[in-house]
């Protein structure tokens, strides 16, 4: 709470912005520290209205495991898509409605982004009530299997983090 009163609505965003600016400036110097501090203080002030509820991670270490799983899946699935594109067989695309258990907005955003980043699936839309995620899959045999995989691999760890 004190951090908020001092003008840091989101302390972690402030830290992240400062660090990113040092990387972008290509080497820490007096100028980059001053500019980084200004940006790190001003940007959260301007943008904090976009975050109606402050996102809170309850188990940060789950995030690390999650990232490892996602990176691994990106590599495996990229190779699968490569084979699919080079294969003369026509793909079997499908629209799949994925029932969301997660209801935290940031959690759903991360889940949708993960689905889009892992090759073979793009999340296309969220239903107005936030209960369904529409996914376009490039090549599926079994929709139920796809839904189960997404739930087990991605949604469960996100549920642990956000709920």
């Amino acid at each position: 709470m004190t951090a908020e009163r001092l003008g840091f609505p989101q302390p972690w965003l402030t830290v992240a912005l400062f660090v990113v600016w040092q990387f972008l400036a290509d080497g820490v110097s007096g100028a980059s520290v001053v500019m980084g501090l200004i940006l790190a203080i001003v940007i959260p002030q301007i943008t904090h209205r976009f975050w109606p509820d402050h996102p809170r991670l309850s188990r940060p270490w789950v995030l690390v495991r999650y990232l490892v799983v996602v990176f691994y899946d990106i590599i495996v699935a990229s190779i699968t898509v490569t084979i699919l594109i080079l294969n003369p067989r026509r793909p079997r695309p499908a629209f799949v409605s994925y029932p969301l258990t997660l209801n935290h907005p940031l959690g759903v955003t991360i889940l949708a982004s993960t689905i889009s980043l892992t090759p073979g699936t793009v999340s296309s839309d969220v239903s107005d009530d936030g209960r369904l995620l529409l996914i376009h899959a490039l090549d599926v045999d079994d929709e139920a299997e796809l839904i189960r995989t997404i739930h087990e691999r991605y949604e469960k760890p996100l549920l642990e983090m956000f709920q």
Partner: peptide, 19 residues
């Protein structure tokens, strides 16, 4: 070039390029 429709072509550039 090869994928059949717009939605499928969406997968090409966003995906294989990730890797």
């Amino acid at each position: 070039v090869r994928l059949p429709d717009f939605y499928a072509r969406l997968h090409g550039p966003t995906k294989a390029t990730t890797l």
